[in-house]
Simulated assay, not measured.
Amino acid sequence: MNADVWDTIGQLARYFEEHDTGLGLAPEEQWTLQVLKIAEETGEASQAVIGARGTNPRKGTVPWDDAHAEIADVAITALIALARMRPDGPAEYLARHLAAKSAKFLPPAPTVVPGPTERA
């Protein structure tokens, strides 16, 4: 992720933290509510997928773009939660965690063995 994305995520995290602090919520309460917000966004993404598949006859269908937007909302909300819970370096934490998780599924990067050096 580029620095602009993390800068925006950091700004949003600070905004919501200031708002919640103004309401008198302790950090752990704020984090709990942020995680619940992720769950809410996930529910909206689920509803959009159901709508895109047209499996709820009462509601008709919606375009897949609606589902894509809701998935993006889940990701944004999760990144804000991480930034609020790990203000000391959420990008680095995410990178380390992603590396550990992906190592379970992806083959290791090939090792490049340098060839003999050419003399001038």
Rank of each mutant, 00 (worst) to 15 (best):
M1D: 15
A3T: 11
D4W: 13
D7V: 08
I9F: 03
Q11H: 09
L12K: 06
A13G: 06
R14C: 06
Y15T: 01
E17K: 11
E18G: 06
E18T: 04
E18N: 09
H19L: 13
D20C: 10
D20V: 05
L23M: 14
L23D: 14
L23Q: 14
L23P: 07
G24D: 14
G24M: 13
L25W: 07
L25K: 07
L25M: 14
E28K: 11
E28R: 10
E29Y: 01
T32R: 13
Q34K: 03
Q34M: 08
K37V: 02
K37L: 05
A39M: 08
E40I: 05
E41N: 02
T42Q: 10
T42G: 13
S46D: 06
S46F: 09
I50R: 05
I50P: 00
G51M: 04
G51W: 05
A52Y: 11
G54W: 07
T55G: 03
P57V: 00
R58H: 04
K59R: 04
G60E: 03
T61P: 00
T61H: 01
V62P: 00
V62E: 03
P63K: 04
A69S: 13
A69D: 14
E70I: 01
E70R: 02
I71M: 13
D73A: 12
D73N: 12
V74I: 12
V74R: 01
V74E: 01
T77P: 00
T77G: 01
L79Y: 02
L79Q: 01
I80G: 00
R86L: 05
D88A: 15
G89K: 10
G89R: 11
G89A: 12
P90T: 12
A91W: 06
A91K: 10
A91C: 13
E92W: 15
Y93F: 15
A95E: 08
A95T: 07
R96W: 09
A99C: 04
K101P: 02
K101Q: 12
A103M: 07
A103I: 04
F105T: 08
P108D: 13
P108K: 11
V112D: 10
V113A: 09
V113R: 07
G115Q: 07
P116L: 14
T117N: 12
T117F: 15
T117L: 15
E118C: 08
E118S: 11
R119P: 03
A120C: 08
